[in-house]
Every structure is written in structure tokens, then in C-alpha cells.
Design a protein around this nucleic acid. Structure first.
Lengths: 264, 264
DNA sequence: GTGGTATATTTATCAGACCATGATGAATGA
DNA sequence: TCATTCATCATGGTCTGATAAATATACCAC
């Protein structure tokens, strides 16, 4: 009855601003509500990493929900990397922090499902890596520097073994990223590295000449970082990754990753 | 019996590289196996976006698992943004693509749980936005340009209304990002924008002088983009966001976001 | 001590039922 | 004829209660 008159108003096409109507009400799922509560407790630090959530049966009595709903919410938090659940006595759901791998997985899904082109990912690197090199030059610790140097030695040594060369190449770039100390940029770099690696394994052909010039570029960049010269590290890394992108793109690598068969 | 000799080796403290040991064996959960299967079908395009997964009861008979496990796997896929589930007749789980918002959520969780400093996020912008501006200058469409111009007019007009100014400011930057056409970088920019916005709302104080100089900078950048001058767009954006970062950092904004109470 | 065994506690999984939602189409009435 | 109403039905959402599997802990036999 009440709604009927509203219905008349609707059908009349008239806009009556004096009538107050209820806002559209959406019914969230019980599991989502609980998941939101728990997520908020975790990100605000009320449930610090390493501590445990109440066990499932306790959550059932606390929340008044069924075990099904409680478990649904735990699965969501688990897939967000906020908890890690183990079975057995003194098992349970331990609070963990998402970590860069979590961001990387999300980016990988994005890249794969959208058929992002390799060119775009390399463009990303061109945007990000010079800054990473500059930050690494400023902020690197002794251990980080020696890790980079060790990888560089391996890199020089691997110049005639293509598979090993490719693997160490990206590892070296990642080591520099980690030395930058900028967590979001490290996460981005790690996130795009895996898709780049996949694409490169699949199609990129290197030549001995290119590999030797890459070794030369790495050597110079390493010098800049060692000297804590942020400006030259930035400039040299910029040249290096730009050149890399140009070569890859010129080789027709600018087609889409994944879903090549659908043609979309 | 077999494990016994291995145990001896462990306690001896000797490192014997000739002995091969079994790798730690993890028992995957039934729900995860099913989730992996379905995820693979989705990302490879065998289940195209817009189509529907079999309904839950069908998945139960197909997989031989219980409805609990089937539903657990669906919750995981849903939280990854790969499906969207609706109830009711002709409801079900529709395949969707993750989208940039999914990456943004993941990054936001990372930033909040790790207490990433505002300085790091602004450093991110400095790394990314000049490239975005350059790409936007090269690739922008007519519609994208007019959107940027419209936001710029609003921006100029809002210079004396701090709240409106802040909102439009970031929207303008995001519009430029979208015009770049580089999906991964757009996603990163959107991802870090929300945390930056939150932090800025919370603490950053602007002055009329700063706002007017920002308007001037935006005007010049817009000129470069309009002229499709990628180089100058890059350079001007670089100056603009660097200056922004320097101001914010000098105001003591370099403390950690979130968890300020724990002091860690 | 060392390794086996029982036990307790936890999550994982199953089975089956009922509820809530919302599209469909038939019945109804102007 | 057309719009409205209402029963129907397929779907996911929620609940209940039970059993299986994993695993830390305490205890026991040698």
C-alpha cells in the first residue's frame, strides 16, 4: 500500500522533491561484513602481525554467524594475504602482512587478463628504473651493494649462456630496486618483472653484441651507484632501459601478451 | 627408516651437498585446486568475460567436491575480481576482469599495513608522472584532452576553495594518466592516489601561494600536452611533482601513514 | 634420551536442509 | 489490449551438525 502510491508517482513521470524516499538499500553478505571488521582490525594494528585470530568456533559464537559464513570471510582475508591459516593443534589463523608478492599477483592477473602489451611493461620500466637507480645510489647499504656486485660478477660471467644471462639480468635489476628503499616502487618492479620475464622467455632473442653492451651499461651504472652519484645513476639507467625497450619493440615484441589466439 | 639417516645428517651440522633431500611437501586444499583450475580457464580466455560459470550445484557434481569447497573457491575468485556473483533466478557467477581498482585495493592494503611513508608515495609520483605526461602528450585523444581541459578550468576556478581544490587537483592528474594509454602505469597512479589523498586530507596544509603556483604549473603542462610536446610535458611535470614532494616533505609529512599509535 | 603412542585441539570437508533473492510467466483486472 | 499482481522456480546465501585430517603436546616403553 505504501509503495503503491510511490509507484504512482514514479509512473506519472513527475519529479516531486518534497517526498522523501528511502535510499536504495543493499544487503551485504554476512561474510563480507565480518571480513570487513576483521580487515579493519588488522590494518589498524589492533591485531598485530604474528598474533592469532580467535579460532573458527569462537568467531562463530562471537559473531552469531554460522561456521559457513565465518569461513567464507576467512577465505577472503586469506586470499588478500592478511591471514595465514594452519590446521592442527595450536593451528588457527595467524595475522600476516600482504607483502610485495601480493601486489605482484594482483598486477599479474591484471596484465594477463587485459592482454597488456610488452611495450607497455617496458615503458613502465623506463619510467620507474631510473628513479630506482638514483634512490639506490643514495640509500644503498653495504650488504645491498655487495649483493648487487655479486650478481654483476655472475652477470659478466654468464654473457655466453643465454638462459643464465636472462635470469641474472632481471635479478640484478631487482636487487637495485630493493636497494632503493622505496617499497611501492620495489613492489611495482617485482610485479612487472614476472610478466616481462615470461614474455622475454617466450620470444625475445638476444645477440652476443646486445649482451656485451648490456654488460657494459650495467658496469657503468654500478659505478655510479657505488659512488653514490644519484644523477648519473639515473641518467645511465635511463639510457640502458630505453635502449632495451627500443630493441624489444623494434623486434615486433609489441604484440599483446596472453590471449593471442582470440585476437582481441 | 629412510628419514632417519637424513635426520642424522641434520643434527650433525654438516652440509653435504651430495645428499638430495625431499622438498617440503605442502598439501593443497581442495578449494584452492578448484580455484586454480577456474582461474586458469578465465585468464586464458576459455571462459570469456560476460559468460557464466556453471552454477554451484553443477560445479559440485563436476568437481566431486562438496558445496563448501566449491563455494570457498568461488569466494577466492570473487575477491580477486575474476567473477561477480549474483543471487536469484538467472543469477550465478559471471566472469569479469579484475580492473585497475583491483590493483588499487591490493596496493592500498600494502601501503596501509606496512605504514608506507607519504614521502615514498610522492617519490613514486615523481618517478611515474613525468612519463605519464609525456605519453599523454603523444597519445591523447580529443575527448581525453577536453576532459583534462575541463578539469583544468574547474581547477583554476577552485583555487580559493581548499577542499574542492584538492579533489580536482588529483582528478586532473588522473585524467592525464588515463590519457597516457599505459594501463599498468595508470593502475599504479590510481593505486597510490587514494592513499595520497587520504594522507593529504589528514595533514597537508596548502597556502594560497602554493595553490596559485600549482595552477601556473598545470597551465604550462597542459600547453605542452596540447602541443603534443612530450619532452616539455615530461620536464614540466617533473618539476611540478618534485616541487610538490619537496613542500610536503619539508612540512614534516614524512612520517608513516597508518599505525601512528604503535610508533613502529 | 630416543622414538613411539595416545590425546587434545584445530581446520578441512562433507551432507543436507531451509531461507532470500529476483526473473519469469500465468492469472487478473481495468 | 495492456498493465498489474502474484505464484513459481532457479539461484546463491545461510545454517546445522557431523566426520576426517593434521599437528602440537604429554606421556610411555625401551
Amino acid at each position: 500500500m505504501l509503495y503503491w502510491s510511490f509507484g504512482m508517482e514514479d509512473r506519472s513521470g513527475m519529479k516531486n522533491t518534497t517526498i522523501t524516499r528511502v535510499l536504495p538499500v543493499t544487503v551485504p553478505k554476512a561474510a563480507d561484513i565480518l571480513a570487513n571488521q576483521l580487515r579493519e582490525m588488522i590494518v589498524t594494528g589492533r591485531l598485530p602481525p604474528g598474533s592469532f585470530l580467535p579460532n573458527e568456533r569462537q568467531l562463530v559464537t562471537d559473531s552469531g554467524l554460522s561456521r559457513t559464513s565465518v569461513r567464507d570471510s576467512l577465505r577472503v582475508l586469506e586470499s588478500e594475504g592478511l591471514i595465514s591459516t594452519k590446521v592442527g593443534r595450536s593451528g588457527g589463523s595467524m595475522i600476516t602482512l600482504p607483502g610485495r608478492g601480493s601486489v605482484a599477483r594482483s598486477v599479474e592477473l591484471f596484465v594477463r587478463t587485459h592482454g597488456i602489451r610488452l611495450e607497455s611493461l617496458l615503458e613502465c620500466r623506463v619510467a620507474v628504473e631510473p628513479t630506482l637507480a638514483a634512490l639506490a645510489a643514495r640509500h644503498h647499504s653495504a650488504e645491498q651493494l655487495s649483493e648487487i656486485e655479486a650478481l654483476h660478477l655472475e652477470f659478466v660471467d654468464s654473457v655466453d649462456q643465454v638462459q643464465r644471462y636472462k635470469a641474472i639480468n632481471l635479478d640484478w635489476h631487482l636487487a637495485i630496486a630493493r636497494a632503493s628503499g622505496n617499497e611501492p616502487l620495489i613492489a611495482l618492479m617485482e610485479a612487472i618483472s614476472k610478466p616481462i620475464r615470461d614474455a622475454m622467455d617466450y620470444q625475445h632473442v638476444t645477440t652476443p653484441e646486445l649482451r656485451h653492451s648490456a654488460v657494459a651499461a650495467h658496469t657503468k651504472i654500478l659505478d655510479s651507484i657505488r659512488a653514490r652519484d644519484a644523477q648519473s645513476a639515473h641518467r645511465r639507467m635511463e639510457r640502458h632501459v630505453s635502449a632495451y625497450r627500443d630493441v624489444a619493440v623494434s623486434q615486433g615484441a609489441d604484440r599483446q601478451l596472453e590471449r593471442p589466439e582470440t585476437g582481441q
